[in-house]
Simulated scan of single mutants.
Amino acid sequence: MFDLLPLAPPDAILGLGEAFKNDPNPNKINLSVGVYKDEQGNTPVLASIKEAERRLLEKEKSKGYLAIEGLADYGQQVQEMLFGAGHPILKDKRAVTAQTPGGTGSLRVAADLLRKHFAAAKVWVSKPTWANHQAIFQAAGQLTDVYTYLDSTGKGLDFDGMIASLEKLPAGDIVLLHACCHNPTGIDPTPEQWKKIAAVIKDKKLLPIVDFAYQGFGDGLEEDAVGLREIAATGVDVLVCSSFSKNFGLYGERVGALTLVTNTAEAAQRALSQVRISIRCNYSNPPTHGGALVAGVLNDAALRKQWEGELAAMRNRINKMRHLFVDTMKKLKPEKDFSFLISQKGMFSYSGLTNMQVDELKTKHAVYVVGNGGRINVAGMTEENMPKLCAAITAVL
């Protein structure tokens, strides 16, 4: 029967990773898949995680199932990361959290929940957004559309256009927002702009989903939560999809969370009861290991301090590479200004390269970036590969 199935196209991003693996060029450079790399080009296991893992393995006595919503300690620590310890939302028990298999799992659980209970609502995503966002919600049976985000230069936020788009949305529709380190552009609203976005969401009676995949990779753990906290401060219901792939380096462990914020503790428990059903019909309950590592780090003052230092080091290395890239390109191609990359945040940036230039980078120079804006994973840059990278980009411009 499967002989009749059509061959599906490769994933737009992960497919590039496969092509990179198969490329025999010894000097190839991969700036496509969103994975952090250190100066040696490796994706490291954080020292804080290694210590948390050592302690876990010493104490672990069972491989039994977790509750449907996962580890209670994990959920509590996730909420404190999002809102801060002692926040009124936490004190009033107006937030509930379910541990999920990565941020993608969180988004899919949210999509199933919303499709079941708000079937008429359309999901609006930024133009552009992460390539998988619309696919996840469409797979759950929801309609999707886009709101204005990137300006006409491709280098900044069209804030007036964004607000105008949001103000036109029907009450009850769903808006997906990037908390920080916007993927794929690296362009974020300012704290003042977040206040206006939050006010429009409340005024238009929209339901926000905040995708929080990079907390700590922008300006810092607290600074990166400003947008979410501004929205929550208005009193609207909020869904938050967290991922700990990047900030804890736990890519292969698939560690995420879905947090729902409501107006009352009773509403929160009602919402959690429905989340449990969505999870039970999907993967039943989450894996233990990765969530236990995150909880182990966040529950221990010394490990948390160590982890925050490691996170700051990753953030600073990315920012260093941004500056080095801009400086190197200025020397090689002074008439082409790439300084806009410095103001962008997180792992990704829109380079402005055309699809033709992106293809030429791959076929002629073994440099892999994502098309449709030339999304570059800045974390894949190193001091060693920077000269070859910039020379290749100069050649295709």
Rank of each mutant, 00 (worst) to 15 (best):
L293C: 13
G86Y: 01
I89L: 15
H133A: 11
Q79S: 11
P101V: 12
G227P: 00
P6Q: 07
P208V: 01
M1E: 13
P189A: 03
M162K: 01
G141Q: 11
L150I: 12
A313H: 06
A67C: 03
V123W: 15
K59V: 03
N22V: 01
D211E: 08
G249M: 07
F217V: 01
V175I: 08
V33T: 15
Q77A: 08
R229Q: 15
G156C: 03
V294D: 07
V378T: 04
G371H: 11
A19R: 09
K61P: 01
W194F: 05
T328G: 01
R115Y: 08
R315H: 12
K59L: 04
G172N: 10
K331M: 06
I13M: 09
E69F: 02
F348K: 00
F340V: 03
T153V: 06
A267P: 01
G290Y: 02
Q269M: 04
G256T: 02
L272W: 13
E384F: 14
L166E: 05
Y350T: 00
C390Q: 07
D160Y: 01
D173P: 06
S243H: 06
L303G: 05
N355D: 15
E230D: 03
L4R: 14
G75C: 06
G352L: 11
P6C: 10
Y214F: 12
L332V: 02
M1W: 14
N285T: 08
Y251V: 07
Y350P: 00
E80M: 08
G249Y: 06
A67K: 13
D224M: 11
R254V: 04
A295T: 05
L293T: 13
G102I: 10
L71T: 07
G64E: 15
L332S: 09
R304C: 13
D160F: 01
N263Y: 04
G84Y: 03
K202W: 01
Q99C: 14
D173V: 03
T104P: 04
P191K: 06
F2N: 15
K330P: 00
T382C: 10
F325M: 12
L46H: 06
L5C: 13
P10S: 10
K28Q: 08
L341Q: 01
H365E: 13
P101T: 08
R115I: 00
N25E: 13
I231P: 02
L16T: 07
K61V: 09
S62G: 03
P6E: 08
I231S: 09
Y65Q: 14
K246V: 10
F118K: 14
G235E: 10
R317T: 03
N27E: 14
L14R: 15
T148W: 02
K155I: 06
A179D: 01
D11I: 01
L324Y: 12
G296Y: 07
T104Q: 15
C181K: 00
P101Y: 15
H289Q: 12
G296E: 07
Q142E: 10
L293M: 10
V294Y: 02
V367K: 04
S245C: 10
Y214Q: 05
K195F: 00
L228H: 04
L397C: 14
R304G: 08
K59A: 07
H178Y: 09
P387H: 13
A232I: 05
F118E: 14
R94L: 00
K362H: 12
L260Y: 05
Y149E: 08
V175F: 05
M347N: 09
G15W: 04
P128K: 12
N377C: 05
G296L: 07
A98P: 09
A232C: 12
D145V: 00
